[in-house]
Each structure stands twice: as C-alpha cells, then as structure tokens.
Design a binder for these strands. Structure first.
Length: 565
RNA sequence: CGGGGCGUGGCGCAGUUUGGCUAGCGCGCCUGCCUUGGGAGCAGGAGGCCGGAGGUUCGAAUCCUCUCGCCCCGACCA
C-alpha cells in the first residue's frame, strides 16, 4: 500500500472526546471515527487490526473443535419471552418493530437464538459435544457509553456456545475454551489474567473473566501474590471472622446532632470506623431489608442480590427509610427494626459496636448481635479489599484494575430447559443440553492491546496484530536514488508476502516519522542519504526504537528473520 | 435518570460575563516558491446556516425560552 493513497487520516491534536490513551490513539492514528455515542466506524487500518485479531481467534476456536456460523443480528421477541429475558434485559436492549408490529431486538447476545437452532437439528447424544461460534456485532444500549470502543453500544464480539450431554463433558468444553483463551490473548500480545467472576444475568454457576490489568480498567479485582487466586471483587469471598472475647457493655444512647456519615461519626466519637455498624436499607424486589456492614467496609450488592435471590436491588429512598427506621436518613440501626436484617460476617463478630438509634440525631454504643438484635442471616455481604486474607493460602490479597476482554461461563441448563432444547441419551432418555458460553470482546481487545503497547509517540503494535508489518520511509521521495531503492524494496518485500506500506508522500521526513510512530508499524525501513552512501538502509524497531543499519543485499533476509523468526 | 461541562471551518481553541459594524487564532487543506533525518519557511487561497427552533432588540455567536447532540462523575449493566 502506498501511503499517498492510504485512507489513514492522522490527527496532530488529541480530540476532546477521548480520555483514555487507547481511545486517543485510535482516533489520532486514523483507526476509527465516532459516528454517534458508543458507535464507531472502523477505518482501513483499524479494520485490518480487527481482522488480525479475528484470524487468531478463528484459528484457536477451530483448533478447539468449534465451528463457525453466523447468527442474525435481528432476533424475534418470542424467543426472549421463552426465557423471560425480554423483560429481564430492560432498557439495555435495543428493541424494534417491523411493519406488521412484530417485536424484535438487536441481539445483545445470542444464547436464545442458538439454542433454538440447536434444538431443531440436534437430537442425539451421538452428535455431541457440539461447539459453535460466530464473530458478530452486538448491541447493548449502555446507560453511559465510555472509553471509546471499550464500553460501546455497538461492538464486535466472538461468542461461542457449547452443547454437551453431561457435566463431565461440559467441563471438557469449558476447559478447552479456557485454554484457547489463554492462547488467543497471548498471541495478541496481551497479558490477560483469568479471574473468578460473578455470573450475573447470563446465569450459570462457574465463570472466569479474562482481565487485562491496567489503570484504565473498569473492573476491580483482588489477587493473591502468593498463590494463583484471583477474583473480581464482586465475586471474591471474604472469610468468616472469629469473635473477639470481650465483655459486653451496657447499651448507651449518644446524642449525635447532624452526624450522618460514618466518617463524621468516627470523627465525632473518636471511634475507629471498624467499630461502627453501617445499616443500609435496600429494596429487594420492592421489599425493604436491612444490611449490616462494618463501617470501613463496602457493601457488595452482587453478593446481596445473589443471597436474597432477587432480581432487583436498589438503595431505599429517603421516604422508605423514614418509614422503616422512624428516623431521617443517617440514623438507621439494627435495634428495633422489624424488617429482615442480614449481617455481614465482620459485623457479626463485632463486640460493642456503634450503630444508629433509629432516632433523629442519636446513635447507640455497645450494640451486640443476639443480645440487642436478631439476624435473619449471617453471611458474606461485603466487598473484598486489599489486605484481606486469601481464602486459599492465607496470604494478603492485593487489588488491581482490569479490563474484561473475555469471559467463559458454565450455563448448565439455564437456557436449554426453558427453550426445551433436548436430546436423547444412551438410554433413550430425553435430557436438556448442558451448555456453556464463551465471549471475547474483539473491538475491546484492540483497545486493550493499545493500552498495553504504546509510548508517548503512539502505538507499538505487536507483530501479530499490526495493520501492516513494515513501513518504508524514503527521507526524500523526490530524490531519484532514494525513490528507486525504496520502490525496489517495496516490490521485493511484497513479493515475499510481507505487509508493507511505502510512504511515497512528498512530506518532510519529520512528518513521515511522526505518522509511522503514531500508527505503530513494528518495523520502519528508512531510506536516506546517510546510509545509502554505504549501500545500507536503516531498520528501526518501533517497540524499542532500536536502529540497525542493514546493507541493501541483506534487508529482505533481515526482515524475514524478524517477522517469521 | 441525577449532578457537572461543552457545542464557533476537518482538529484544537478564543470571542459570550458588559449585544454593535467584514467572526478570530493555531494546526490541517489547496496553489506557487523554497526546503528534505523528527510534525520547516515565505507568499497567495478555499472553507463557518456560530448545534437547531422560537423570542427580545434598530441590531444576537453574545440576552431569554424550548430543543437536539456530545463529554465527564454517579446510579446502572457484563
């Protein structure tokens, strides 16, 4: 490709819309442009990167015995009614009607439609295991799209679904995908860490997320530096805490005018936040419940939701709180509450804690479980944090941020049962498929790669996903000798099957170097008067900025060795 | 949905508070000269319904009302 004809409009300045490095570089390097909030056009260079990533995914999926197909983007509402997700998905689903008034959605995911397909055509255990995947656009009307392609409303995803006859076989599918993901991300040059995760609305009992660690990440994870335990904080379990043996003191009301937050209370009473009981009133499927968390801990709504087995969980509004506690917001406490009280382990082990008195401007000291209030249950309800003990080895957990690039789920029969997708087993017995689903955010992976491979000058693409492998830059394209050498090299490298751009623009060298760095070609071959005198050109490795003079007769070999090893 | 901010040429911005005459600047773009190892220089030029609608006024980018779009924080979601 000749740079003079390449549609890669680079920008010198950072567009105001971009905050993340990856987002900025994707715009500046001319990989993509925004069309509307959360929707992007991929320009030729961006598309080439996507295709490289997709090729890696296809190779590994095929190697794991998955077969590619292509499902429709527009899906009928009926299928979603069968699983109940037409209602559950809520505003995040893009919905539309055809001219007859029939309802459809733009697929946010494809479990329903693939299960409906397989139930038609697969009826015997002999046809299993079956693993099917596609690379497709997905649509989710995110409440707030952000970070460019990382949280977009239209995005590209590889999704794979496995159908097995029993748990044992399903575990093999899960493991095969898990291993394939490891290889895929490695080949993309990504350092992706598998972490235990919560299964969320998709459902299922076991799941791992593949996280690319970095400041830009939206998810918080905890990991153990001593063993290989790693989990999303939403999922990470916290240990039961042993009760301190201490004398129970008498309840004592304390006037705390205008003291409403844990921080203020700790300051006011000169008491550590860990001695304070935080009483949070939630509405779980519209019914009020109280959750007790230690003052210095964070409530984990995913855990709460899961334990209560409710579909909706939200903080109660001030009116409800006053109704339930008979006090304004800020003075809720467990004593005398007549709604179910769910107590976190850490609170259950507290002795003589401080809590709200359910009375305006008042708190109570020396609150103790069982003696002063009854728990509906004592469970793990808080968010894990740095310094917590590792459940596996007892080490001290650390936290990190991560971007989720892939997730693997064991679904069980969550979809096959309601959709009546069954087969006959060896004994002629009808059984629902044991399913799994496995996603990779392809467009997001591109951004994640940039997050991990860039410097102040631009992107440093790993060879495996670079839009082109080499750029040839004649310092002065008008110079006859430089042009001749550059053109010859361009020809011979392309003949050898390399992906090459020739920068034939009549720009000054600085402009061409800046663009080459920004776009991030792994190799740059500079054809300039200095080296040419000695019959050489200069090869620059983008990632290290290393400059190597190579004689003209050896360039092809050098490049070949670098790229093909 | 709540809070905050922004919409002025392709990109980045000034001008808006205190209305005023041809709406500016930098970058990019076009033409010519010149230059060619890290975003050169000189000269000339193209390009703007000031997001949109309505209103106030002799006069609106500027004031008022409504509306649309975009970004950030949060709630949300995986």
């Amino acid at each position: 490709m000749r740079a003079s004809k390449l549609y890669a409009p680079t920008l010198r300045e950072v567009p105001a819309e971009a905050e993340l490095i990856s987002h900025q570089y994707m715009l500046r390097a001319g990989l993509m442009r925004r069309s509307s909030s959360g929707m992007y056009t991929y320009l030729p260079l961006g598309l080439r990167v996507l295709q490289k990533i997709e090729t890696i995914i296809r190779e590994e999926m095929n190697a794991a015995d998955a077969q590619e197909l292509l499902l429709p983007i527009v899906q009928p509402a009926e299928l979603w009614h069968e699983t109940g997700r037409w209602a559950d998905y809520g505003d995040e689903m893009f919905r539309l009607k055809d001219r007859h008034g029939r309802e459809f959605c733009l697929g946010p995911t494809h479990e329903e439609i693939i299960t409906a397909l397989v139930r038609l055509d697969v009826s015997s255990y002999r046809q299993l295991p079956l693993r099917l995947y596609q690379i497709q656009n997905k649509y989710r009307d995110e409440i707030r799209p952000r970070f460019g392609v990382i949280r977009a409303r239209e995005f590209i995803m590889k999704d794979c679904y496995s159908f097995d006859k029993d748990d044992q076989q399903a575990n093999l599918s899960y493991q095969a995908m898990y291993n394939a993901y490891d290889r895929i991300f490695k080949r993309c040059g990504l350092d992706a860490k598998p972490v235990e995760a919560d299964s969320g609305a998709i459902g299922g009992d076991s799941t791992h997320e593949f996280m690319v660690l970095g400041e830009a990440g939206e998810a918080l994870i905890v990991y153990c530096p001593q063993c290989d335990y790693a989990a999303n904080v939403e999922r990470a379990e916290c240990k039961e805490v042993e009760k301190v043996e201490e004398e129970l003191l008498q309840l004592e009301e304390i006037a705390t005018p205008e003291v409403k937050t844990i921080e203020q209370l700790s300051e006011f009473l000169k008491v550590e936040e860990s001695k304070i009981i935080k009483t949070i009133i939630y509405l779980a499927d519209q019914k009020p419940v109280a959750v007790l968390i230690r003052g210095d801990h964070q409530a984990n709504e995913v855990k709460i939701k899961k334990y209560l087995n409710c579909t909706q969980l939200e903080l109660a509004d001030p009116v409800t709180i006053e109704e339930v506690t008979k006090a304004p917001v800020g003075f809720a406490g467990p004593i005398g509450l007549d709604i179910p009280i769910y107590v976190d382990y850490a609170v259950a082990s507290m002795v003589n804690g401080v809590a709200g008195a359910n009375k305006v401007d008042t708190h109570i000291a020396n609150v103790n479980i069982d003696r002063d209030y009854q728990a509906a249950a004592i469970v793990d309800l808080r968010q894990a944090e740095a310094g917590d003990q590792c459940l596996r080895c007892g080490g001290n957990l650390e936290t990190a941020r991560g971007t989720e690039v892939g997730q693997v789920f064991k679904l069980g029969t969550k979809y096959s049962e309601p959709l009546k997708a069954t087969f006959l087993d060896e004994n002629g017995k009808e059984k629902p498929f044991i399913m799994g689903c496995y996603g990779i955010g392809v467009s997001r992976t591109m951004a994640a790669i940039i997050e991990q491979h860039h410097d102040q000058d631009g992107i440093c693409w790993p060879l495996s996903v670079a839009p082109y492998q080499v750029i040839i830059v004649p310092v002065n394209y008008k110079d006859e000798e430089q042009r001749k050498v550059a053109e010859q090299l361009y020809q011979s490298l392309r003949d050898l099957g390399f992906e090459v751009v020739l920068d034939d623009r009549l720009e000054r060298p600085g402009v061409k170097f800046k663009d080459a760095d920004l776009i991030g070609f792994p190799l740059r071959i500079t054809v300039g008067p200095r080296q040419l005198q000695e019959g050489k050109v200069e090869v620059t490795i983008r990632s290290t900025k290393e400059q190597i003079p190579v004689s003209l007769s050896e360039v092809e070999d050098w490049v070949s060795k670098f790229i093909r090893g």
